[in-house]
Design a protein around this nucleic acid. Structure first.
Lengths: 264, 264
DNA sequence: TTGCTCCTCACGTCACGTGAGGTGGC
DNA sequence: TTGCTCCTCACGTCACGTGAGGTGGC
């Protein structure tokens, strides 16, 4: 059998597992050009590496093996073109998706890191860069449960606002005064999406941290006000509460870490 | 159960199939915050949409559910960061891979289309743009089988030359004269990789097509020579035989379509 | 003879999908 | 009562992976 390759040889040449080659043969996707009539050994030709490489490209793109098998059985230039056309579109979508995932993970990591470095006991004054956001509609807080309804409404806006809820989220208070009056009830929710249509402006911010569930800022509100008074600072513009460590990082809601910042 | 969401409601909010939510509950990856003690109904809280969205991002990146489950059970900022670090690397690799697949499909489609438009009976003169290639080592043709050994050697160089054999391939003859003398035995093989380190120069090329297996150019060689003589053209530089429709497009090797071109 | 490769067959795995049969809420 | 949703349990699916037991080539 000098001019043919055994399963192992062909496996090495093509980079495909021998067990996969047997499976592909079994389902009729890709078979060796000959079988030894005596011992049933599979023998491939070197040229088959071209066809099998094309199959691996498609299968690595999650094209169902049945679809590829159909293609292999008809084998006309037109049908190949058609599949490639479709796949180029799918690939384009997939690459956009991966880009979005990258952006989601990156944004999350940045915020988690910020939370790990934060000292919840301190108020600080720092320059913050611009940050893009997608901001939801005005919240309406009913009696009773403080978060359920407005948060639900925010989530339901996701589609409409082309908002991806995998990004970190936060609450926006229209002014420092409104925060002081109702620290647990943000006027809007937002998601920290770097492709957002709204932005938190760059500038000097008064920053505080607090541990606890979304609604518990009572102590921090006072501390921020005192700090601002002592340093003769006038908060202006909206106040942002970004949930750095929540559900994802910590099982215990009382340990959630929130960063609160307002421009001064 | 006003403040809780049923499986269907949570499914709609999160975009995750109800059956998937049940499966994730079953394997201990993600469970509703409460169960009705009477009928065992699952009830989710709206806040859980944050955690589940993070899970879907990871699972859509093919992180094993067990890995995600471990993460969910420890839930520390440091362990999340570690996973995100790894995933950013994996994502980077994956995006490069998809880019390569896109390039492979695109290059193949271009050549297949060219083949569909070609008229094998005609010789033509055309301007061709530069094309990148990865060229293998010099072929050595032994007696007997004309293709097996050199083609095998070419395939085995793939790793070393960082050559991806999923791109279309072809044969290179160092000169028109060498092609005339031995049309079936190219001096080198090459792969049509747009990121290749070698190139086929842009310029005016004498182009012919032929149907048949890699080695059968006898008629075409003469026709090209006659055409060149009649039009007072002097072929120079290497001759390229690009296999437009082979194994992938056509089951019958006698119908393979090869484009032969040489600069004039 | 020894070690290696090859074969088939059966069963496992992962992340669900699909009914089947039955209960519960408005 | 009707229609809808929910439940569990069992089995199917896709693309392999993993031995188990046995044969064949150098």
């Amino acid at each position: 059998m000098k001019d043919f390759l055994s399963v192992k040889e062909f496996s090495k040449l093509s980079g495909i597992e021998a067990t996969t080659l047997r499976y592909w043969d079994e389902i009729g996707l890709f078979s060796p050009i000959r079988r030894d009539p005596g011992n049933n050994y599979r023998y491939y030709s070197p040229e088959q590496v071209i066809a099998v490489n094309f199959i691996t490209v498609l299968s690595s793109l999650n094209v169902p093996l049945k679809t590829i098998a159909n293609l292999e059985h008809t084998r006309t230039p037109a049908s190949i073109m058609e599949l490639i056309d479709r796949q180029e579109y799918v690939l384009d979508m997939e690459m956009r998706r991966l880009h979005e995932c990258y952006s989601i993970l990156h944004t999350r990591r940045e915020l988690i890191k910020r939370g790990m470095q934060a000292d919840p006991s301190k108020i600080e004054l720092r320059q913050m860069p611009e940050r893009r956001l997608v901001v939801g509609a005005d919240n309406v807080f009913p009696e009773g449960d403080p978060f359920y309804e407005p948060f639900m409404r925010f989530c339901n806006q996701a589609d409409e606002l082309r908002m991806n809820l995998s990004y970190p989220i936060g609450g926006l208070h229209k002014s420092f005064e409104r925060f002081l009056a109702n620290p647990g009830q943000p006027d809007k929710f937002f998601s920290v999406d770097p492709a957002g249509n709204a932005k938190k402006e760059a500038g000097t911010y008064l920053i505080g941290y607090v541990r606890g569930y979304y609604g518990q800022f009572d102590d921090l509100a006072q501390r921020l006000r005192d700090y601002a008074a002592q340093h003769a600072l006038t908060p202006h513009g909206p106040l942002y509460a970004i949930y750095l460590h929540e559900e994802i990082c910590l099982a215990d809601p009382s340990q959630y870490l929130v960063q609160v910042c307002v421009a001064v």
